[in-house]
Design a protein around this nucleic acid. Structure first.
Lengths: 119, 119
DNA sequence: TCTACATTAACCCTTATGGGTGAATATAAA
DNA sequence: TTTATATTCACCCATAAGGGTTAATGTAGA
């Protein structure tokens, strides 16, 4: 029955889990752009682009400034901080694991050398 | 027509865009666990848990070791590195933007003080 | 006012997701 | 061999996503 609760992280990670949307973010990192400009940069319809933009807006990654009939989109990378923090925990977990493995290998190598000495 | 291409980042971000799956990862960061153990920790069925695990496996975040009739799941945070790298670009983008804003405010403050001196 | 342009809204279609139940499979244990 | 346990498979259901097309809206300009 859908999800019990949608959090910011859900929307954030969900937003960036699509290649087209990541490409839109990359484009906006260069400069602001209008909807049509973004649409012409990708092999999808204007309408589809509009939907992707809405999802990015919901996640807080893109802000819109309406100037007359033109909608100018800007990248707002602020919410990425929370995602970065979440991922950082696992990145460290992984580094620690690698370090432990390395320590194990070094220790084992020592043991092997010891054993070969005995032979 | 679905997506033209599913990349590792799609699967990675898609996998962690669900709260239950993030909770499973957090649980596995403590210690390995069987499917049933994970299922009993969350208010969803065993079957649903199994599906979440499969999605985490597809993303490479969880590995499975079948021992007889028990399936032991382990966290593999390795793939997080790519996601961390991707996010880092935007985190820096944001920091630079903040720094630029701060510089602007400081400069403006100077201008204001200059103006008030003139008055 | 009439026309052209920018964007969204309202639909349709297909696939994936998140949830469920009940059956099937595989292994451990009696 | 029979039974119990662990997990998945095969379905059903509802919703959301990603894509499309064709209006509808809103604004700039002639």
């Amino acid at each position: 029955m859908g999800e019990y609760k949608t959090t910011r992280l859900d929307e954030l990670f969900g937003a960036v889990s699509d290649g087209t949307r990541r490409a839109i973010l990359a484009r906006l990192a260069q400069s602001d752009a209008r909807v049509t400009e973004l649409a012409s940069a990708f092999p999808i319809s204007l309408n589809s682009t509009s939907k992707h933009i809405r999802i990015l807006e919901r996640a807080g990654l893109v802000t819109r400034s309406v100037q007359g009939r033109e909608h100018v989109l800007s990248l707002n990378a602020g919410p990425m901080a929370e995602a970065a923090e979440w991922i950082e925990f696992y990145r460290r977990f992984w580094e620690d694991r690698l370090a432990a493995l390395e320590a194990f290998v070094i220790k084992k190598r020592g043991t092997d050398q010891h054993r070969s000495k005995k032979q």
